[in-house]
Simulated assay, not measured.
Amino acid sequence: MTELGDLDAFVAVAEARSFRGAGKLRGVPASSLSDAVRRLEERLGVRLLNRTTRSVTATEAGGRLLERLVPALGEVGAALDMVNDYRDSPTGTLRLNAPIGVTRLILPRIVPAFLAAHPGITLELSSEDRFIDVLAAGFDAGIRYEERLEQDMIAVPIGPRIERFACGAAPAYLDARGRPEHPRDILHHACIRHRFASGVTINTWEFECDGEIVRVTPDGPFIGTDAAIELDVAIAGIGLIFAFEGLLAPSFAEGSLEPVLPDWWQRFSGPFLYYPSRRLMPAPLRAFVDFIKRA
């Protein structure tokens, strides 16, 4: 019988189309995966992967094997995971993908208590604002806002159900440049903008009051990819910042930032934990879902 570990290594490399990428996702050296795939090919007597310096792709035989292996290995993993039902507390690894804002503002209130309640679970958390296929990337579940949810996923609310985008600036900046009285006044101000890791820049700030929605296109001397740096730049008096209210709230409380147009801060629904509909859910994920439902 072929070792399950070698079969699993083949699936990981074939899906990632890269030994290095698969190794990064699995937390193992790429050389270990290469050795496993080579052993598998020698046992079967057929090449499963085409390797070049730039890419790794499945051969016809490899593709046919992959189609059958993915559901089969999923069933094996689920069968082994059933043992967790006989433990006082489940064990295993839970792999989550979440936006940076959620990681900073919501998960710190949840993760420590969850891990304390389930000492046998290891949580691997990846924080990024790119919109990816979390399942194809090897995660058990993801956290996203409603407009980014896949339609065929199960979604469970996590964290506050209502959030707001807030706008603020350093008092010294507002003393020098004036305080906006309407969102359109922002067009005459320096603004601090955000660019996602994907390269997309937030080009529109949206405000709402009494049913009226106003969208403005900000301009200014600074574009950042890190909210913490953008906050520092705003506190230094460079311009207006537009971000999650939770991110700016401590600065409002201490007075280093002053709220701008608070009556116009737009509300939106909070995030959701989402995961595929499966007959057998991994025990660590089931424990996390149950935990946030009780929170």
Score class of each variant (00 low, 15 high):
residue 64 R to Q: 06
residue 96 L to N: 07
residue 20 R to K: 11
residue 239 G to P: 00
residue 5 G to N: 03
residue 195 R to F: 01
residue 8 D to Y: 03
residue 121 I to T: 08
residue 2 T to D: 04
residue 150 E to N: 10
residue 253 A to S: 10
residue 213 I to S: 13
residue 154 I to L: 01
residue 84 N to F: 10
residue 48 L to P: 07
residue 52 T to F: 03
residue 194 H to D: 03
residue 224 G to D: 14
residue 98 A to V: 05
residue 90 P to N: 14
residue 213 I to G: 05
residue 91 T to M: 13
residue 8 D to W: 04
residue 35 D to W: 15
residue 87 R to D: 04
residue 61 A to I: 13
residue 15 E to Q: 12
residue 262 P to I: 12
residue 295 A to C: 12
residue 37 V to M: 09
residue 132 I to Y: 01
residue 68 R to N: 12
residue 182 H to L: 13
residue 33 L to T: 09
residue 29 P to F: 05
residue 81 D to Y: 15
residue 178 G to T: 05
residue 132 I to C: 02
residue 38 R to E: 10
residue 143 I to K: 04
residue 105 L to N: 02
residue 141 A to Y: 02
residue 153 M to P: 00
residue 230 E to W: 07
residue 257 L to H: 08
residue 74 G to Y: 08
residue 252 F to E: 00
residue 100 I to F: 05
residue 1 M to V: 06
residue 91 T to E: 15
residue 54 R to W: 15
residue 92 G to T: 09
residue 274 Y to D: 04
residue 31 S to N: 07
residue 281 M to A: 01
residue 24 K to D: 09
residue 76 V to R: 08
residue 133 D to R: 09
residue 170 A to I: 01
residue 33 L to A: 14
residue 53 T to G: 14
residue 35 D to R: 10
residue 131 F to P: 00
residue 293 K to L: 12
residue 273 L to M: 11
residue 34 S to Q: 02
residue 108 P to T: 12
residue 11 V to P: 01
residue 112 P to N: 11
residue 279 R to H: 08
residue 263 D to Q: 12
residue 261 L to M: 12
residue 15 E to F: 01
residue 178 G to H: 01
residue 37 V to D: 08
residue 127 S to M: 09
residue 192 I to Q: 06
residue 283 A to S: 15
residue 118 H to F: 14
residue 239 G to W: 00
residue 260 V to A: 06
residue 157 P to V: 09
residue 292 I to D: 12
residue 116 A to Q: 13
residue 260 V to S: 06
residue 84 N to Y: 12
residue 55 S to N: 11
residue 133 D to Q: 05
residue 264 W to Y: 15
residue 207 F to M: 03
residue 193 R to V: 13
residue 46 V to P: 06
residue 136 A to E: 15
residue 85 D to N: 13
residue 31 S to E: 13
residue 253 A to K: 14
